[in-house]
């Protein structure tokens, strides 16, 4: 049985995330992939506004903090300046699928050779749990106190399905991190995204169905169950697109 310890690409800092928030798991998975591919020294992370905006304290690679929604554009600038470096963004759902919709769609359709880690937890965590573009119909949030009503607030965005229509996308895969098996699957998907980037094969996005126990008003364990019972039926796991674009 192999030893298990914190990957080198994570700093020693204690993360500020709430207890049971799965951001921590996904951070570790990204770091493990950086370790295993031995690319920490060649990686640049772009972390925009949202709960993970302070990820620069957690990743040991170079990190750029970015404005809300703009990470794919910032990452494009980094990648065009350094085509041989590994560039990834780490974005939440409000960031990627609301204020940053244009940036993600166009980075994807350009086939920008970057890897996007997309955290979908159906809410704006940092600002205290408002309706996100991914909030499920009926879901109660601070700004949908009677539940999201599609007649009023419209429908949630299914990001992987949407982006998989674009020719520039090499990988669009939805995973989750609710048990050891799904965590291992998520890591494989993240690794795959970075491998696509290594081989200059185009844009990759890994959507991770995640929890926000604090703003969902649940215990961390109940939150894992909600992902299974409510989120996965609306956001099915799986590979939506896979194949080199160039």
């Amino acid at each position: 049985m192999p030893d298990f310890k914190k990957p080198h690409a994570l700093t020693d800092a204690v993360m500020h995330y709430c207890p049971g928030c799965t951001h921590g798991i996904v951070h570790r998975l990204v770091a493990e992939v950086l370790d295993e591919m031995d690319i920490e020294g060649d990686a640049i992370g772009v972390c925009p506004v949202g709960c993970s905006v302070m990820a620069y304290d957690y990743f040991n690679c170079d990190v750029i903090e970015a404005a809300h929604g703009r990470a794919p554009a910032v990452a494009t600038g980094v990648k065009r300046a350094n085509p041989d470096k590994f560039v990834f963004t780490y974005q939440g759902d409000g960031d990627l699928a609301a204020i940053g919709t244009a940036e993600i769609v166009h980075a994807a359709t350009r086939g920008e050779n970057i890897t996007v880690i997309f955290i979908n937890n159906t809410t704006y965590g940092m600002t205290g749990g408002q309706m996100a573009p991914t909030t499920l119909p009926g879901q109660i949030t601070q700004t949908t106190p009677y539940g999201r009503n599609p007649d009023v607030e419209g429908f949630p965005v299914r990001v992987c399905e949407m982006l998989s229509q674009l020719s520039g996308v090499a990988l669009a895969q939805r995973v989750t991190v609710i048990d050891p098996k799904s965590v291992n699957e998520a890591k494989k998907a993240i690794r795959k995204g970075f491998e696509f980037q290594k081989n200059k094969q185009g844009f990759s996005i890994i959507e991770v169905l995640s929890t926000c126990p604090t703003n969902w008003g649940m215990t961390p364990i109940e939150a894992l169950q909600r992902v299974k019972d409510e989120m996965i039926p609306y956001y099915p796991l799986g590979v939506y697109k896979e194949g080199a674009i160039r």
Binding site: F4, L10, H23
Partner: peptide, 22 residues
């Protein structure tokens, strides 16, 4: 404990180590 590390895999805070110097 069989040292399977499944607990550590689920830990969001890298608070669990298995084996090694720890």
């Amino acid at each position: 404990c069989i040292g399977c590390a499944l607990c550590a895999i689920m830990c969001p805070d890298c608070a669990i180590t298995v084996g090694g110097e720890a």
